[in-house]
């Protein structure tokens, strides 16, 4: 299981595409910094992949009410917990 983090907006299409292509079942995708804007797109995630967004970055950008239903929000402690629960953390930037 891998925790993938992504910190660039969806306009960085090549990065988003490569990140999504690398996801396997049971992986988690954590969106942070400008990456939280990716949550506003209809991401095509493989089945069994959880997608979360970092609370402070969602709040900072005022997009909390715009997040689609499938996106969970986690705080900094939740980010740390995800790092523990997965075997490795791969950052896309």
């Amino acid at each position: 299981m891998t925790l993938h983090t992504l910190n660039r907006p969806p306009s960085d299409r090549a990065l988003l595409t490569d990140c999504l292509a690398a996801l396997l079942a049971d992986d988690t995708l954590l969106l942070l910094e400008d990456g939280v804007y990716c949550a506003l797109e209809s991401l095509s995630l493989p089945t069994g992949v959880r997608c979360v967004a970092l609370a402070a970055d969602v709040e900072a950008r005022g997009i909390g009410s715009r997040l689609p239903a499938g996106i969970e929000v986690v705080d900094d402690a939740g980010f740390v917990e995800l790092c523990c629960r997965n075997d490795r953390v791969l950052s896309w930037f």
Partner: peptide, 14 residues
Amino acid sequence: GIAGLIRNHDVVMN
């Protein structure tokens, strides 16, 4: 193949 490669390594750095 790339997704499998990532799973097969302990440390993956971008």
